[in-house]
Amino acid sequence: MDPGGAPPVFSARAEVTGDHVRVTVTGEVDMATADTMVQTTLREPARQVTLDLRAVTFFDSAAIHAVVQLARRFPKTLTVFPSRQVSRVLEISGLGDQEWLRPL
């Protein structure tokens, strides 16, 4: 975050179609916002989840933990579309080859 600048914009928006929820996340996913991402995902009952992180600009260990939680909750039915930044962080953390992660 830029000291003295505007706070980063974070949003997590869910769209439900039948038993599928698509959560579109923008901005920084960190200790302050990761739980909101998870709660937005879990708010609606769903069997299949798509997490669209293509507009995420920052992704830390709390965000990684949140995605791993969702992967455990939705085995074989979670799909994550990463931004370049998210992809890089997941690769560095050893999660770049997960079946739920889609290539850029």
Rank of each mutant, 00 (worst) to 15 (best):
L78A: 11
R73W: 00
P82R: 03
P82C: 14
P75S: 12
P82E: 14
F74H: 08
A62Q: 04
Q69D: 13
T79K: 06
T77Q: 12
F74M: 04
R84A: 08
L70G: 08
L90A: 02
Q69C: 07
L90R: 02
R88Y: 11
L90D: 09
R84C: 03
I64D: 09
V89I: 08
A62R: 02
V68I: 15
L78P: 00
S83H: 05
R72M: 08
T79W: 06
Q69Y: 05
V89H: 02
P75Y: 12
P82T: 06
I64V: 13
A71V: 02
A66L: 08
H65E: 11
I64A: 10
R84H: 07
R72W: 05
L70V: 04
V89W: 06
H65L: 08
P75H: 13
Q85H: 08
A63S: 11
I92Y: 09
R84S: 08
V89T: 05
P75N: 12
E91K: 04
V80C: 13
R73L: 06
T79R: 12
S87C: 06
L70I: 04
V67Y: 13
T79C: 08
V80R: 02
V89A: 10
P75A: 12
A63D: 10
I64N: 10
R73P: 00
V68H: 11
R73H: 05
I92A: 09
G94R: 01
Q85E: 12
S87F: 07
R72S: 11
V67T: 15
I64K: 05
L95F: 13
Q85W: 03
V67Q: 15
V86Q: 13
I92Q: 07
F81S: 10
V80W: 14
A62K: 00
V80M: 14
F81R: 14
G94E: 03
A71W: 08
F74E: 06
V67K: 04
A63F: 09
I92G: 05
L70A: 11
V68A: 15
A66D: 04
A63R: 00
Q85R: 09
Q85C: 05
K76C: 13
R73V: 03
L70Q: 10
H65N: 14
A62S: 15
R72A: 10
R84G: 06
S83K: 12
L95C: 03
V80G: 13
I64R: 07
R84Q: 07
A66V: 02
T77A: 13
R84K: 05
L78I: 07
P75Q: 12
R73I: 03
E91C: 04
G94K: 01
S83P: 00
S87H: 12
T77R: 12
S93G: 06
Q85G: 08
L90E: 08
L70K: 05
S93E: 04
V80T: 14
A62P: 00
I64M: 09
A63G: 07
I64L: 11
A63C: 10
A63H: 02
A63V: 02
